[in-house]
Simulated assay, not measured.
Amino acid sequence: MSAPLLTALVVDDEPQMLDIVTFALETQGFTTVTARDAETGWNLFREKALDLLVLDVMLPHSSGLALCRRIREVSEVPIILLTARGESSDRVSGLESGADDYVTKPFHPRELALRAEAIVRRTRPRAAEAVLHHGPLRLEADRASVHGRYLNLSSTELRLLTRLVQNTGRTVPFDELLLAGWRQTEGPGGRQMLKTAIYRLRHRLAAEGYPRSIKAVRGDGYQLIPFNE
């Protein structure tokens, strides 16, 4: 089976810039999803398995820097910031926010595409170091597959599934899963968030031939069920 396309999220409030960046990345082998504000970008980040984010610094309601910092709290996915300002202080602010690269507008689309590819190539070997297997389930640091078919998991869902696979045969407590998924052990709606994420995981695993995957242990947490049990 051929490797899946790399997926990039592009967040920019200018339609023309979205088109330019999307075209540049797609010529370099990426598939793209787009958003025009930080909150929509955040929601897509949580829903999609992403290999790269390209964020405009100046966004409505919340800045690209704020979104970058928010993502960095939970993920090491490569991030490129775009800005119309080229001062060194702005570049420093971007890198301090956790960005991997900082590109000043106007830019040559081909240069952006090559820099994007280089960043992903640089970071993916680190992700490939740790691979977990559980029956037909294969887990890498940045994606999961069943029977060779890649699952469309959010970064949170992938972290939850990884923690369950790492603890096959034991019940993983609620607070441990909350810490793995959201970097918190408790909080308003925490158990409900976890219940919803586990429901989505079960549904996606069942669709790929793993129908009985995660068992709820009443009052304690969740446990991964051995494949075909």
Rank of each mutant, 00 (worst) to 15 (best):
L164G: 03
T185D: 06
T22H: 10
L52F: 10
L81W: 09
A66L: 12
T168E: 14
D19N: 12
G169K: 05
I71D: 09
F23T: 15
L82S: 09
F107K: 00
N43V: 07
S62G: 03
D101S: 11
G64I: 11
A8H: 11
G221T: 05
T22K: 12
Q184W: 00
V10M: 04
E229Q: 13
T171H: 06
R204A: 06
R72S: 14
R218M: 11
H133P: 00
E87R: 15
T196K: 11
S97Y: 01
P4R: 13
R121F: 09
Y222Q: 00
G148N: 11
A8I: 12
D19Q: 15
H133F: 05
R121S: 13
R212Q: 13
L132F: 13
G29C: 08
A128D: 14
L65C: 03
P188T: 06
I225C: 04
L158M: 12
E208P: 09
W182Q: 00
R36T: 15
S62D: 05
D51E: 14
T185A: 14
A113F: 10
G29P: 12
P173F: 04
R204M: 04
L153H: 09
I80T: 09
W42N: 09
R204W: 01
V57H: 13
T156V: 15
R170W: 04
L65N: 00
F45M: 01
P173E: 07
T162V: 03
Y150D: 12
Y210D: 00
I20R: 11
A144V: 01
S2K: 12
R72E: 08
R121C: 08
L224F: 02
V77N: 03
S97D: 02
A24F: 11
S62W: 09
P188G: 07
Y150I: 11
Q184K: 12
R36W: 11
T22C: 14
L67A: 06
G29W: 02
T31N: 08
W42H: 14
S154F: 03
A24P: 09
P188W: 03
L59C: 08
Q192K: 15
D142S: 15
D13Y: 06
L139M: 02
P60D: 07
E117G: 15
I20W: 08
V172C: 05
L55Y: 07
P173G: 05
T7A: 10
S89P: 01
L50Y: 01
G181E: 04
L52C: 13
P60N: 13
P4Y: 08
D13T: 10
S88W: 04
T104N: 00
H134I: 04
E39W: 12
I198D: 00
A197M: 07
P211L: 05
D101V: 07
S93Q: 14
P136Q: 00
R170V: 15
G209M: 13
K105R: 12
L158Y: 02
A84P: 01
E14Q: 15
E129K: 10
P226K: 10
S154Q: 07
E87M: 15
P109I: 00
G209Q: 04
T123R: 13
R183G: 11
G135A: 00
I80G: 07
Y210S: 01
A3I: 06
R70D: 09
A118Y: 08
R202M: 04
A35W: 13
